[in-house]
Amino acid sequence: MHKLEQDIRQKDHFDTFFRENYPALLNYAYRFLNDRSTAEDVLQECFINLWNIRNEIDRNGSLKAYTYKMVRNRALNYIRDNQKETPTESFSDDKVDSLNQENENETGTLKKMHLLKNWIKTLPVRQREAFELSRFEGLDHDEISEVMKISPRTVNNHIVEALNTLRLKFTDYQTNN
């Protein structure tokens, strides 16, 4: 469980950790903030902080979960402090792409991918976050529970619920087409 790479006290390990996790974390922050440069700023602060406190971090815990939690907290704080400037504040607020003619040209798997992407966007906020952290960011249930400050059991419920909803939509789509 505890890996050498998790020890970021050495500069090159820190850099490796940064390079491996930056893209996913930037997308994660972006989903809260809906603005790339704000997301980049939040991430920069997080990593600077991570470096400054590198000697105090509990090395038996998950560094990834710790970092996601920090990004999440700072993104939410930013929204709280800048509410007027940022009217969009919830995780799933980005627009669901409409299925226009362009998309009708898509066939088979690609079209289903597109639909799936939209279905995920319509999931309840917390469900969607738990689901995406689990499926796409590769965090385990304990890590997600730490990031989202909910019990592992609730994490599991969210993910099961999300999977059911998506499966339902998928089978509906298969039957009607």
Binding site: Y22, Q44, L116
Partner: peptide
């Protein structure tokens, strides 16, 4: 299968190049 392939095929909201990552790391 669709779910498994999803992260591989579907694009993220932001496209982030290697040089974006290096620039961000240099800033840190």
């Amino acid at each position: 299968k669709l779910l498994d392939d999803f992260p591989k095929i579907s694009q993220n909201d932001l496209s982030i190049s290697n040089s974006d990552i290096e620039k961000a790391l240099a800033k840190v």
